[in-house]
Simulated scan of single mutants.
Amino acid sequence: MTQSAYTPASLPATRSKTTFPAAGTAGRERRARTEPMVVRPLRDGRYVVETDGGTYVVALDADTCTCPDSELRGARCKHLRRVELEVREGLVPRPGERTAVCAVCGGRTFVPTGERGPTLCDRHGVRPGAFVRDRETGDRLVVVAATGERADRFETDEGRLVADYPTNEAYGAHEPVFHAVYFDALRRDGEVKRYAFPASRLQPIDPRADDPTPTTDTAASASVSPPPV
Rank of each mutant, 00 (worst) to 15 (best):
G53F: 07
T167P: 09
A199I: 14
K193S: 05
G107R: 12
T18G: 07
T215R: 15
D63L: 15
Y47A: 00
A219L: 06
A145K: 01
C121Y: 00
P228T: 11
V143K: 04
R43Y: 01
F197K: 03
H179L: 10
V162W: 13
T2K: 15
E155Y: 01
A219V: 06
L186Y: 09
D122Y: 07
A170C: 06
E175I: 05
D164E: 08
G107S: 10
D189N: 14
A9K: 11
R135D: 14
A219R: 13
A145P: 10
T218N: 14
V181N: 07
R28E: 08
D206W: 07
G24A: 05
T215L: 05
P227G: 15
V192D: 11
V101R: 12
E115P: 10
V126R: 06
G125K: 13
R140W: 07
C102S: 05
R127Y: 05
V177P: 03
D189K: 12
D152V: 04
S223A: 15
G27K: 14
P112Q: 03
C121H: 00
R188Q: 06
G74Y: 01
K17E: 13
T7A: 10
V143P: 01
G96N: 02
F154N: 00
V162M: 05
L42T: 12
D164H: 06
G27A: 02
A185R: 04
Y47V: 13
A173N: 01
E71A: 15
R150S: 12
V111L: 08
R94A: 12
P68H: 14
A9R: 13
R98M: 05
Y182C: 01
E158W: 08
C65V: 08
G117Y: 13
V48G: 06
F131E: 12
E136N: 10
P226W: 00
V142K: 01
V143T: 00
C65A: 05
A219M: 11
Y6D: 13
D184P: 06
R88D: 10
P21F: 05
E89K: 05
A222D: 10
R135L: 12
V181P: 09
C67E: 11
V224H: 00
T64F: 02
G114C: 05
T109Q: 06
P93F: 00
V142W: 06
R123G: 08
T99N: 12
L202V: 14
P176F: 02
S225N: 11
A26R: 09
K78I: 02
